[in-house]
Nucleic acid binder design. Structure first.
Lengths: 227, 227
DNA sequence: GTCTATAGTCGGATAGAC
DNA sequence: GTCTATCCGACTATAGAC
């Protein structure tokens, strides 16, 4: 009986391949990564990609499942906490808005931490590429987290700004705020060249959070006029 | 004497290849685009890529030169106009800040128009990919426009917010505002799925501009506190 | 400048031994 | 589950006729 103590060898191979593929796909893109390079990076035989994932494309999809899991693991506690607190907001309009704003900032603190993490440097290029021409792989991460996150942000934006939750304006503002936080990962070239940040150190992350906070607080310090 | 009236045949070939490559590279990436596909899309012989550009990589660089030219052509008039008006700002602090804010909004109106244009849909994926791992091709567009644009935005942000122009905080805010405007192009997957915008219609662009204006105006409606 | 033809390389997938 | 060996298609680049 070694069903528990002895991890099957195949599992190790799968894990190694996914971890290596996250890196290699991230650096060279799907077409730029050869199965030989993927196998070498994982330290396994090239034929095992076919055996375990059915082929290169299968491995690619497995990588996205892994990304979705990483995102989930990082954001789930915060999202759940906020979801819960949303049910017990104060009734007074001013307090209510102030509270929602704080929840919004809490959510983005976690979000920025996730983006700043070492791991996200690998998957950002992949997700970015998928965005331009979304396939099944994009659905994987959208459905598991992004969609829910967007809804939650919209709700917080609506309350703290006084905008109507279902309105297009409110959704646009939601995406803009997302842009605020993501620009440092997405526009990496600009960030590197213009801020001369070679990589995101904790000090940089703090500076980003601080400016993000200033920006969002001033945006919603008074009710946003409905157009 | 037909040096003027008769355009050399080679020029047509080069133009056709660059135009086609902009599209094909944009959709499939550098590695995903084969020289055969590039030639077919341009309606020319595959061997001509080698003849005119020295190879696939040479064509890729030529595409980036073309992108830089397109950006320049679109932004140059606005940038120059603003540069000029910056020299004759009113001395009164309040008026000065208000004026700089209006210039900032003018600049971004042009910038958003550029991003919303049909052409940018093709080159956005290319630029995005270059950003993740900048090569010589990225320098081409950074040096020709982006760098100057960032400096100009920073200056306008500094004046209209009261932040110190050279400060890191001011530069961070500059990039964040850029993120505001770029998110709809860059996070295309989110935009499509969440706003259910299949493409950017003029009405969508107007809505983006309006929210952008609201956001920036409220951010700088009072002096930003220095940390 | 443009074409055909091909050399030379590398890709993903898989058959079959262990 | 893992390996070696290999098939076969697709690729880039280029030689050489026109």
């Amino acid at each position: 009986m070694n069903t528990i103590t002895n991890p099957p060898r195949g599992d190790q191979t799968r894990k190694a391949l996914i971890a290596a593929a996250l890196d290699v796909f991230g650096r060279t893109g799907f077409d730029g990564a050869s199965t030989r390079a993927l196998a070498r990076a994982a330290g396994v035989n090239q034929a095992l990609i076919g055996y375990h994932f059915g082929g290169k494309r299968g491995l690619y999809l497995a990588v996205f499942e892994n990304i979705a899991e990483q995102m989930q693991a990082h954001m789930a506690p915060t999202v759940e906490g906020i979801d819960h607190q949303l049910n017990e907001l104060p009734l007074d309009d001013g307090e209510r808005r102030e509270r929602a704003l704080q929840l919004l900032l809490t959510l983005f603190d976690a979000f920025i931490d996730m983006l700043a993490g070492q791991a996200s440097a690998h998957w950002t290029p992949l997700v970015l590429r998928e965005q331009q021409d979304p396939t099944e792989a994009f659905d994987l991460i959208y459905d598991s987290l992004i969609g829910r996150l967007l809804s939650l942000i919209t709700r917080l934006v609506a309350i703290s700004s006084g905008m109507e939750e279902g309105s297009e304006a409110c959704r646009i503002r939601t995406l803009m705020i997302l842009g605020h936080a993501m620009v440092f990962r997405i526009a990496r070239g600009f960030t590197k060249r213009y801020l001369q940040w070679e990589e995101l150190t904790p000090a940089h992350v703090d500076a980003i959070k601080e400016q993000f906070r200033h920006s969002v607080e001033s945006q919603f310090s008074e009710r946003v006029p409905q157009s």
